[in-house]
Design a protein around this nucleic acid. Structure first.
Lengths: 291, 291
DNA sequence: ACGGTTTTGGAATATTTATTCCATTTTATT
DNA sequence: AATAAAATGGAATAAATATTCCAAAACCGT
């Protein structure tokens, strides 16, 4: 009775392995179990969000049959199988609070260790950005900015580097842009002219001045593109298109990698939409001599 | 007991409605509930595959708080809310690499494709940085900056965002720092006092002013930490420690992801070396209130 | 058609997960 | 500083869900 069950010592660890195992196993399966295999194969993506009962109903078998099927696939039960799919879908973010503690316990935060953490946080942020961009909003933003006259860029505190970077790239691409820093407490409110557009950037303790300026712009009828951290940001209210950046933070410190990536994409897209398509193709000759 | 809960008669029927409601509702929310709103907004896609307990842990609130949040959103409870997301669930953005491909498939030059490129460039830069960082130089830089009095930061053009970011983080950590922008063509050369130190940042078409200021500092006996792109950079000549950042570029455009990561690491390391070790342990209370 | 073997369905149980409730704490108001 | 109102955390409870088990049914070779 030991080797009776055919070859199922180890559970699949990835979705690929799962599919392999499924193909392998479903050869000589009795009727009900084959129904399970077929339905699962056809609806693998719903495993993560279904209950045993639902899946069983779908395969038109009683729950216990599906249960047996899971075990034949090498899992201890349905829950374990489901876990695979739930995790595969959203690769769990490491939790930084414990990581931070470890780091602290070990090397008292040697600079190199710290750098490793920020590099990792940056990488995750970039990946998350790729996964979560709202393409429609991005397209809309580019369209708006491409047809505006001068572009007003505002962002203070943590967002200031992003604002300066945007302005820098616009300048290199010969797009008229104006940076609203707050030097000398001068707000250049009256520089906002009909036909212009604004890019406003602000993060968590949202800066009052930025919000204010965005609102001003809105009231003067300028379209406003918001770059912020959450859809629930107050900036969203004043914006015609909102781009959110899921920046993962390490301790109390939040990186900017993803935000910068989004900013340069936006700028280059706008620049090439305005300047004609070949701005991108041969940029080394036209637009941006590196620094 | 009928009108106790404020204004929440009808439950969102689509994800769109859900987002609207979320934005609407999260205005005047007390602390814990706001944490829920934020975490949910940032991780809406994981609702379908998570339990109350998991989501609550992610938002760093007890399950009952999240439960209340669901009701404020107009649902009878978590299960009803989850149902919405399970039905809408399509394992849409599976993993990073296929998502990138999808973005690129929008056609070369489209904003989404551009973003994919910059995300990729950023990631590569970060990886390269992690591999190539000169730990000795980093340690030396931190040591020097930790024992200096005020820190002078200079970086113009493409390096300017980095300089402003550094200054921002220093300020948040209560490290005296001075940003040498070039506003009004004022060079604050005479602010360089014995006992101070300088961080100078410049990349390929090295900016004359930055080099000049670094040289000034050197001549006055201040230690200079250089952040640049190659070891053969002219900045290296004026620096006591040189940190190089291998930023990969896309077309004529070079990202800043790695440079930013290096900058924040440097700043945090310096900040905690100066301020006592626990700057890192409880940063949320001391140093940096998020933005 | 008979005994042995495999497969099946569903009822019983165990486990996990959601939800409610209320005693404490916090916050706002006077 | 005193009071009322709102918010919070956690323990208790309810509900849903997974899992096991076994008697009945189907199957198979003789």
């Amino acid at each position: 009775m030991d080797d009776a069950a055919p070859a199922l010592n180890t559970a699949p660890a990835t979705v690929e392995e799962f599919r392999d195992r499924l193909a392998l196993v479903s050869e000589g399966l009795p009727k009900r179990l084959r129904q399970c295999a077929d339905h699962i194969a056809a609806n693998a993506d719903r495993i993560a969000v279904s209950t045993v009962a639902e899946l069983a109903a779908g395969a038109d078998v009683p729950p216990s049959a599906l249960m047996r099927f899971c075990q034949i696939m090498g899992f201890s039960g349905f829950s374990e199988m489901q876990k695979l799919f739930r995790e595969a879908y959203a690769p769990g973010w490491p939790d930084y609070s414990t990581r931070l503690k470890n780091l602290k316990d070990n090397g008292a935060g040697s600079p190199a260790a710290l750098l490793a953490e920020f590099v990792e946080a940056g990488r995750l942020s970039l990946e998350a950005l790729a996964k979560s961009v709202d393409e429609a909003a991005l397209d809309a933003a580019v369209a708006v900015l491409a047809r505006a006259e001068t572009l007003h860029v505002v962002g203070l505190r943590r967002a200031f580097p992003v604002a300066t970077y945007l302005t820098y790239v616009f300048e290199k691409m010969a797009v008229p842009a104006m940076l609203h820093d707050a030097v000398g407490r001068l707000d250049h409110r009256f520089a906002l002219r009909p036909g212009d557009a604004m890019i406003a950037i602000t993060f968590t303790p949202y800066s009052e001045e930025t919000l204010q300026l965005a609102q001003d712009a809105r009231e003067r009828g300028l379209p406003v593109i918001g770059i912020t951290d959450r859809l629930t940001s107050p900036l969203a209210r004043h914006s015609d298109a909102v781009l959110t950046v899921p920046e993962v933070d390490f301790g109390a410190f939040r990186s900017l990698s993803a935000t910068i990536a989004l900013a340069i994409s936006l700028a280059v897209a706008v620049g090439s939409a305005r300047g004609g398509a070949d701005d991108l193709r041969k940029p080394e000759e036209k637009a941006l001599p590196a620094e």
